[in-house]
Amino acid sequence: MNRRSVAVGMGLRDRPNGSAGSTRPAGRTRAGAVLGAAVAALVLAGGCVVGPGGQDRTGTPARPPSGVLAVKIDNVLPARPQTGLAQADVVYAERVEAGLSRLMALYATRLPGAVGPVRSARETDLRLLRQFDEPVLAYSGSQSRLRPLIEAAPLRAESPGNRPEAWYRGDDRPAPHNLYLRPRRLVDAPAGREALTAAGFREGPAPAGGRPEEERTVRFPSARFTFDWSARRGGWLVETDGRPTTDGGGQLAPPTVVVQYVTVRESAFRDRGGNNTPFSETVGSGSADLLRDGKVWPVRWQRATEADGTRFTTGDGTPVNMADGQVWVVLAER
């Protein structure tokens, strides 16, 4: 049995309706008829027409077509077990204050009924999400100095203050570990698998070779993740801080785990307790370990600019594929 432990050091248009009178030129009359037919089709298909101010005619804010939905999820002991993690396409595990961990779950192919507990955003999230086209970031609060960066980021930021109808508090645990999101009240439909492929999450056959590996542990200063290969499940059984990571009673078992080694440095932000917020740099290049099919492959990652997706390749530059199903990416300090 091959076992390896990785120590991770401290260290978010409307168009006016035209009309064509009988005195207008024929071309404009036809244009008006076409526009009118289009509006009618919208009414029949969606039940509303978007008007000025981004609202439909009932006064409800219109929901624009959405990209990948990213949800910040609490990961301390009082927040577990989480809800909606099993339906995520990609789960990022990142280091936060005091060496603890937090998750960012991405939904592109399906939307669960609820996700949570939802917590605050970090600067690392904004950099990661630049890989995706117009993503939606669902979060609860942030440091005041980070808010201008969130507002300036090319994403659709959604918090309880924006759309209160999409959020609720559970009664099974104390605040702040009881805030949940109803994704279908925030976005109309999943973005689609292609949104993930464009960012580097390609599905397909495994690379040649690979070394058998049955267990991998990644350690943060005050948290750890263990992935145990299960041939029966066809995935890596996830443990967080020595406890099974479950959702709805079953232990999560993603078919693919990527341990991405990145630079982790101090940021300009601190929490209320004075702890510095670590920033994980995901632009640039470095090494990674790809775990799938009970094996591990040492690979490279490269992301030239913030707007680029992350390319995972073998040593000769050949792109590597993920297995079909959920992917966990653990941002480990190099």
Rank of each mutant, 00 (worst) to 15 (best):
L129I: 03
T60A: 06
P160I: 07
L111K: 01
V238T: 15
S159E: 15
A198N: 04
N276Q: 12
R80D: 05
F220D: 00
I73L: 07
M10W: 13
A231K: 13
R219P: 01
A105M: 04
A323Q: 15
E94I: 09
T109P: 10
A38H: 11
N17V: 14
D271C: 10
G209Q: 07
Q55T: 14
A175K: 06
Q82Y: 04
G210A: 10
D56F: 02
T318D: 02
P78W: 03
D125C: 02
T277G: 08
G67R: 03
A189H: 06
E194S: 07
A288T: 00
Q55L: 14
R173Y: 00
G250E: 13
A198S: 05
G170W: 00
A26I: 13
A268D: 14
R272I: 11
G248C: 03
V262D: 00
F312D: 03
R15L: 15
S120C: 14
V330P: 00
L111Y: 01
L186C: 00
E266A: 15
L186K: 01
T217L: 05
R292T: 15
Y92L: 10
R145E: 11
R145H: 06
T29C: 13
A62W: 05
R156F: 04
P254G: 09
P164C: 08
N178E: 00
L69K: 04
R173G: 03
P154N: 02
P255Q: 11
R13V: 13
G116F: 00
G67S: 03
G249M: 13
P174Q: 05
L137K: 01
D271P: 06
A26S: 14
L290P: 02
V43E: 14
A70F: 02
V43I: 12
I150P: 02
A40S: 15
V39F: 14
E333S: 10
A206M: 08
L155I: 07
D172N: 08
A268C: 09
D316E: 13
A93G: 09
